[in-house]
């Protein structure tokens, strides 16, 4: 198994772009040093956003010709951190700084059954996995959930390729994904303990599945997921970080992460994964005005509810439902190590 967890940088040329669905752009990159991207891999791109160099991760939807053509699918997120707007502006001939394929969501071998769950643009992480499972002749189900067919990338292609193995749930058709039912069906099947689920989608969907998975006492290691820390309980908004140790306050724009804003302001912080997985950038929370939108997968649900700490790389402050009319931005007061 070619497993590349190492990050190395190269240049990639945009060779094709097209629209996949409403607000979803297909971008085909030709890297300098082609390496086949196996299912579950992503590439990181270094983007210049408002004069700052920012890293963004995108799943590789397809790897063709030994990795000479890597296809990405990028959703234009109105509340994004700026990356998707930049990506949607790319044209053939443009050159981007990119990593080789990085594997942090490997598809296992040998499970009795596989259930792939894609929420919205999360489908981009699962297209290649579904193809691999079909080629293997594995027992698998592909669950596709979205707000509306118009915005669901790859929908027709996947239905055609995987036939009866696809289940489609569309909110605006009132055919909604019932997480309890989906996980309950797995838990009640003879292969329950040997079923692996791979999910990628909004963090609210993934949290719901995680809770249902735990409630049915399914083996935690069999629930695989990938999140780039890019979705939360609330849309990203501007907020303020107070740092009493330094006697400073830092403004965090809605397009910027707290970690980036602190570093831009010259505050030294420690970090590693920058996607809410490792916990290295965890800091203590002293006070909150509004709500904390954690967005990480390092802290447990219980830890998140106490508001005692957060991961700087993905967490945000939000005014929440009650305060959304307020003129004052939300704020967190942090104690840095």
């Amino acid at each position: 198994m070619a497993v590349n967890t190492q990050t190395w940088w190269q240049q990639g040329r945009v060779v094709e772009t097209s629209d996949l669905a409403e607000g979803v752009r297909r971008i085909v990159l030709a890297p300098d040093r082609p390496v086949h991207a196996v299912p579950g891999t992503h590439v990181d791109l270094r983007l210049d956003l408002d004069g700052h160099s920012r890293k963004r991760s995108y799943s590789v939807v397809r790897s063709d010709d030994g990795g000479r053509r890597l296809t990405l699918g990028v959703q234009l997120a109105p509340s994004s951190r700026g990356g998707s707007r930049h990506m949607h502006g790319l044209e053939p001939g443009d050159v981007v700084e990119m990593t080789g394929p990085v594997q942090s969501f490997p598809l296992g071998v040998g499970a009795d059954r596989y259930v792939l769950v894609a929420g919205g643009i999360g489908v981009t992480a699962l297209v290649a996995m579904a193809d691999a499972l079909r080629r293997r002749g594995a027992d698998y189900t592909l669950v596709l959930a979205g707000r509306s067919r118009r915005v669901m990338a790859y929908l027709d292609e996947l239905v055609e390729a995987h036939g009866d193995r696809v289940r489609v749930f569309v909110d605006d058709e009132d055919v909604r994904l019932d997480v309890g039912e989906l996980v309950g069906e797995i838990a009640g099947s003879p292969a329950a303990a040997r079923t692996e689920m791979y999910m990628c989608g909004p963090i609210r969907l993934m949290d719901a599945i995680r809770r249902a998975w735990a409630a049915h006492e399914l083996p935690e290691p069999n629930l695989r997921f990938e999140t780039f820390g890019s979705s939360g309980a609330w849309a990203a908004e501007d907020f303020v970080v107070h740092l009493p140790q330094l006697g400073r306050s830092v403004h965090v724009g809605k397009d910027t992460s707290m970690l980036d804003a602190l570093e831009d302001a010259g505050v030294e912080v420690m970090w590693d994964c920058r996607k809410g997985e490792c916990g290295i950038c965890q800091v203590k929370v002293l006070d909150v005005n509004g709500r904390i939108d954690h967005r990480d997968v390092f802290l447990s649900q219980q830890q998140k509810e106490t508001y005692a700490s957060l991961c700087l790389c993905v967490a945000r402050a939000a005014r929440g439902e009650s305060g959304s009319g307020s003129a004052d931005p939300a704020a967190v007061t942090l104690h840095l190590p």
Binding site: M1, V3, T5, S104, F105, P106, G108, V109, G110, E220, P221, R224, F225, E226, T227, C273, E277, C278, G279, V297, F298, L299, S300, Q302, Q303
Partner: peptide
């Protein structure tokens, strides 16, 4: 830690 890093795997052949 109370959770398991979602990326934490080693190749199984």
């Amino acid at each position: 830690q109370e959770t398991i890093n979602p990326s934490a795997t080693v190749p199984s052949y």
